[in-house]
Design a protein around this nucleic acid. Structure first.
Lengths: 242, 242
DNA sequence: CCTAAAAGATGAACATGTTCGGTAATGAAC
DNA sequence: GTTCATTACCGAACATGTTCATCTTTTAGG
């Protein structure tokens, strides 16, 4: 191994966290970078662990002390990107009806996945089946659901939603319906089809229907508190076409 | 291969569907029988394709002309059992509120899966990600959703549900919420936990809330058309405890 | 009956994920 | 500075899913 040079003769062992820690962190970063590049270029199944090890200049066996297996490695990488994307979305919830707000959050995930459907497919397949405590997936899910729950609570406060709706349960249901859409999109071996955001909106809308507060409505327009400002599809992303 | 004897000297080539067809069907049956037994005894991951081939007295390569891979073989087997179970459930929907009826159908799947959670785990994981057209999975899903839709329509007819609720969409949502519960049950690597039917009921109940018709109600008990006859949990299974 | 083409079955060979016993680097104790 | 225990790293060896060139059986045609 020429690149990973010797014990670095003199200076910089002053690192505060110890050489070992730093090496480990750097190595994990190198693995993730190499894996991400290869996964993107050749797909998940088209990439062997040997490829990743070679690209990261790391022994084959070492890979397995950083990720239990190939698929979990992908989850690890994806979470690194999805997690801040969701945080950003939660921090930028628009001032609109609850349905649009929830879709805004879920859309952060959809948009990210659209960048690499092949990888997202594996991610969505593996996510419910890995040990949540590892890789902070459990924390991610908790934060996401808590965020949705907060949005719901705020909708209650501004009188858009009935107060007796259990927020936690509703958050879980909404996410579940969203995840169903994700699976329907990425599940079948059609890497082509686009995510059907109109259909997701329908599904979420149906869950919300009847839960809306009925006070202060001028007429009887099916319970909607205020009118939508755009057509349903437009919320997806800036992209003006379609 | 001694058992699969020679060209059977004289008689029984009179088979109406041709020897070839019959052999193929019989072979598939043999594969499924052997695979099911081994999967049950040693688990999916603990069973190799070589094991199955040996048990079924079939060449290794032959396996792959009957099922594209090991997991799809499991789906094939499971569908054989789940499909009639669901049909039976759809044919025996009790005369009760919509929620109980839907749970009755979904419960057929839960009960079946409880018999072998290890296999069910793989089944639930793979199901959304295989080609639906193969193995009749697509037909199964269509029939299941159509059945739920029919139940919903009947609920509309007897005035339990608002007439403007899109039945098809509601059926999909209810199934999606059910499937989420399945994944939550079988997904994490805890083969122990039992299916949380109370939680499923909550989730489905929340989807149904507010969709119920409001006419003919004697008082204002949250829109329920008629009272439940038992406590919610009891619908799950005969088991009186809990 | 004989022959040829088509369909099916087969297992050796291959590819790749994963394990594990051995080796080297690191940090602590003295 | 030396010693020692701990941790990390490594890749050969293994296990197993999957492919494919070859052989066998079946069917159709003459």
């Amino acid at each position: 191994m020429l690149t990973r040079s010797g014990p670095s003769p003199g200076g910089l062992r002053a690192g505060p966290a110890g050489r070992r820690e730093r090496n480990k962190a750097e190595m994990l970063a190198r693995i993730k970078r190499a894996a991400r590049a290869l996964f993107c270029r050749r797909g998940v199944e088209g990439t062997t662990i040997r490829d990743i090890a070679r690209a990261a200049d790391i022994g084959l066996g070492t890979m397995f002390s950083y990720a239990a297996n190939k698929h979990e490695l992908l989850v690890l990488i994806f979470l690194d990107e999805v997690d801040p994307a969701v945080d950003r979305a939660l921090a930028s919830v628009p001032d609109r009806p609850l349905l649009d707000q929830v879709i805004h959050v879920f859309n952060a995930i959809v948009v990210h996945h659209q960048g690499s459907p092949g990888l997202a497919r594996v991610f969505v397949k593996e996510t419910p089946f890995i040990d949540g405590r590892r890789y902070g997936l459990s924390g991610f899910m908790t934060r996401l659901l808590a965020g949705v729950e907060r949005i719901i609570d705020e909708a209650k406060l501004r009188g858009e939603l009935k107060a007796d709706v259990p927020s936690h349960l509703l958050a879980r249901n909404l996410f579940g319906l969203f995840f169903q859409q994700l699976q329907a999109w990425l599940g079948p071996p059609h890497p082509k089809r686009r995510f059907d955001s109109a259909r997701m909106r329908e599904a979420l809308e149906l869950q919300l229907r009847g839960l809306r507060a009925e006070a202060r409505r001028p007429r009887g327009t099916a319970g909607r508190t205020r009118p939508h400002l755009r057509k349903p599809e437009d919320i997806t992303r800036a992209k003006p076409r379609r």
